[in-house]
Design a protein around this nucleic acid. Structure first.
Lengths: 217, 217
DNA sequence: AAACATTTGTCCGTATGTATA
DNA sequence: ATATACATACGGACAAATGTT
């Protein structure tokens, strides 16, 4: 079996980049609470950096919707409402459906094999009640399709939406279920049949069900 | 007749914001050419600012895909290929279709009236060969629907995609045609019928046609 | 190969403007 | 209402890294 090679460049990670990743993680996992005030000097101290890379990171997080900056006044973590999943999932779904459609001509046996293996890892995570792993693997699964679609715009938009989904799941202790596994199987099958219409349909019913399941009172 | 009030806050526009808007405009209209090297000190001087707001603006433009930063090496304007419209229009279309679908319950007579009036302004711009105005008005038209959808994620993603479309149109001297006017009429009609399926279908055939029309050799 | 010139990345000081007592 | 404390926005200087002669 071929050993997966780490193709990542010898990443000299900039202070800005590490601040960005750390702050995003803290917001997603709730270390930094919704509405919490962010003071650059404090964050700089916490991360042993100066204020500049912190401010730069905060500005990127603002674009992504994780922080809100009131110029001259304050910088806060954005609020999070369970209700927001209703806004998040529809665009996520249509973009994933589009990605699937565009990916179809590029899918080969190897890719299908990878999707299958990923889905098996997914069901294992579900069975062991490991909600966060399950979510990560679910996103990996969809990422395979997105990568195959070979469209940088879709790629980056989905990356951003997925990070918001992770935050929602963390914050509201949501869990994916076995239904997602079944849907993945369906997706693989439909992709093999090269049927774009059917793929869209499945993705759509997927999020309708997910919203109902997760936003149930 | 009530005088329209300017509800925009007395915007103290930050140096960063003005640098961002100016640089984006320059990239879109070609003042800053594809692959052109951007030196922050030069830009700072050109805009009579210090490097800090320039660098911040460049980082936002990087996220949006207008600028490419090679850490420690250089910052350049991203390249632009006519081919890229093929990547741009599909996600644009599915998001607009979704926006239309979500907007349906929120549409009232006043909104339809506004769409109609905007479309009339559109055809006038087309008739007077004013390609850039036409494009702006086309985007205004779709913006009405997006606003009615009331979804911030879709809103921001479409805003970004549209700015890339503007760049493509500028760079390749593309022009919308009367077909778009007809499609707008169809869209309004279908929205009045509250038929989400049909809206999606029209949006989709819209971009298929547009790609064919604009990427023709 | 080594010193140089550029350009970027980071740090920190200061002024402006905001909130609070 | 005034003054005080404080956070942000910006500027300018230094350091690190790149590629160039």
């Amino acid at each position: 079996m071929p050993i997966p090679v780490d193709h990542s460049k010898p990443v000299r990670v900039s202070a800005k980049e590490s601040a960005y990743l750390q702050l995003q993680q803290w917001i997603i996992d709730g270390t930094l609470q919704p509405e919490e005030k962010l003071i650059d000097t404090e964050l700089a101290q916490a991360l042993s950096l100066s204020r500049t890379p912190i401010r730069e990171a905060l500005q990127l997080l603002e674009v992504q919707g994780f922080v809100e900056m009131f110029p001259g006044k304050a910088t806060r973590v954005t609020n999070i409402k369970k209700d927001d999943l209703k806004n998040l999932l529809p665009p996520l779904a249509v973009l994933q459906a589009l990605a699937a459609e565009l990916a179809i001509p590029n899918l080969d046996d190897q890719t299908f094999q990878l999707m299958h293996e990923t889905n098996e890892r997914f069901i294992k995570a579900i069975d062991s009640q490991d909600g966060f792993s399950a979510l990560k693997i679910d996103q990996e699964f969809h990422q395979i399709i997105v990568d195959a679609a070979n469209n940088s715009y879709i790629h980056s938009m989905l990356g951003s939406l997925q990070s918001h989904v992770r935050r929602q799941f963390f914050h509201h202790s949501l869990m994916l279920t076995k239904s997602s596994y079944d849907e993945h199987v369906q997706i693989i099958q439909t992709l093999k049949e090269r049927d774009p219409e059917k793929v869209s349909q499945i993705m759509k019913s997927n999020w309708v069900r997910t919203i109902e399941e997760l936003t149930a009172v």
